[in-house]
Design a binder for these strands. Structure first.
Length: 339
DNA sequence: AAATCGGGGCT
DNA sequence: AGCCCAGATTT
């Protein structure tokens, strides 16, 4: 009887939780591009893009990606470099390679038919415990719960306990609305992203505040990763024709580099040399390092390796996000919308 | 279990 | 200047 410790939202209150959460979601769900339908392909693409990536960042790439690769067949037929070019700036480029590999598997091995269960989705590269459940609940209506950073935070606040990974998944499964699993999962994440935020949660706006044990406090510890700082210098060299940028000198990263292998970037220079001032500076953070980037005007004679790339080709080139940012800021390329 | 993989936006 | 995000894979 008093064994109810293991229940996070007590069983009797779980139906109320579902009702209020879904009613809130029906009224407040953000109008996101991947919520236009429940077709497996766009849902799958969105879930891969959303791995460890904020909604706002995904929105900037999602429509471009689907325009370029409207079907799994088109994606499977594409070159990897084309896929990476559209992915450029989104980060975690392994996701793009695995998405591409999975598309080939779906076309060649599954004859273009998408998996219909979370277990079958799980077999594909780039799809782990979270993603297979997210896709299957949304696109296949399979009653399976997801746990991401949002869900974990919501559930630990609601229960006022720090839960092991096993416990979180169990709690999410208990709470799941089995009639509308896809909406329920998205509602949990939406609540975490927009109301039950890491800091300063908006409990006054929360549909389940009355069922919440903490109402804002988060039990347990936070893990702090040390963020290193580095300065780095790049050489920017470009030709102009008719007063417009025509070609730019770029370098391809080694194919076997662990970080962004095979992608194009500006040549790095060890020191600024005699130049008094860089063209400009930008800030950029990758993995655990915050870079202060200085961009220097440079003459061709300094270059040994690398290639002159036509500016018109740049949108189709697998460039690093930093290179894209620099070229945009330098006025070599226009704003992000160019295809 | 821990390390690795991008990048950016908010506090 | 931290923090941390609709995680998966490798070691």
């Amino acid at each position: 009887m008093q064994r109810g410790h293991h229940q996070n939202v007590p069983g009797k209150r779980a139906p109320v939780f579902r009702l209020r959460l879904l009613a809130w979601y029906d009224a407040h769900a953000r109008d996101l591009p991947w919520r236009k339908n429940r077709d497996p392909y766009p849902v799958w693409v969105s879930e891969i893009m959303l791995q460890q990536t904020r909604v706002a960042a995904v929105i900037q790439h999602y429509d471009d990606f689907l325009r370029r690769f409207p079907t799994v067949e088109k994606l499977a037929r594409a070159r990897q470099s084309s896929v990476l070019a559209v992915w450029s700036g989104l980060g975690y480029y392994r996701r793009a390679r695995m998405l591409h590999a999975a598309a080939k598997m779906i076309v060649r091995e599954l004859h273009g038919k998408f998996p219909q269960t979370s277990g079958d989705w799980r077999e594909l590269p780039g799809i782990g415990r979270y993603t297979c459940a997210a896709i299957a609940s949304i696109a296949c209506d399979e009653p399976i719960a997801v746990v991401d950073g949002n869900v974990e935070r919501v559930l630990s606040r609601v229960s006022s306990r720090r839960l092991s990974e096993q416990q979180v998944w169990h709690a999410a499964e208990d709470l799941l609305d089995r009639e509308r699993p896809g909406d329920f999962n998205q509602a949990m994440m939406e609540l975490g992203a927009t109301v039950c935020t890491p800091k300063a949660p908006a409990c006054l706006l929360c549909p389940v505040v009355e069922l919440c044990a903490t109402r804002g406090d988060l039990p347990g510890e936070t893990k702090a990763l040390p963020q290193k700082k580095r300065e780095i210098h790049y050489a920017l060299d470009h030709h102009s024709e008719n007063g417009r940028p025509a070609r730019v000198f770029l370098l391809q990263r080694p194919r076997d580099a662990s970080l962004m292998p095979g992608m194009w970037e500006l040549p790095e220079i060890s020191s600024p040399g005699d130049h008094a001032k860089p063209l400009f500076k930008v800030k950029h953070s990758i993995t655990v390092t915050d870079y202060t980037v200085s961009v220097w005007s440079s003459s061709p004679s300094n270059h040994t390796a690398g290639k002159w790339i036509a500016v018109r080709q740049l949108p189709k080139l697998a460039m690093t996000g930093l290179a894209r940012k620099i070229l945009r800021k330098a006025g070599v390329t226009k704003s992000a919308g160019v295809r």
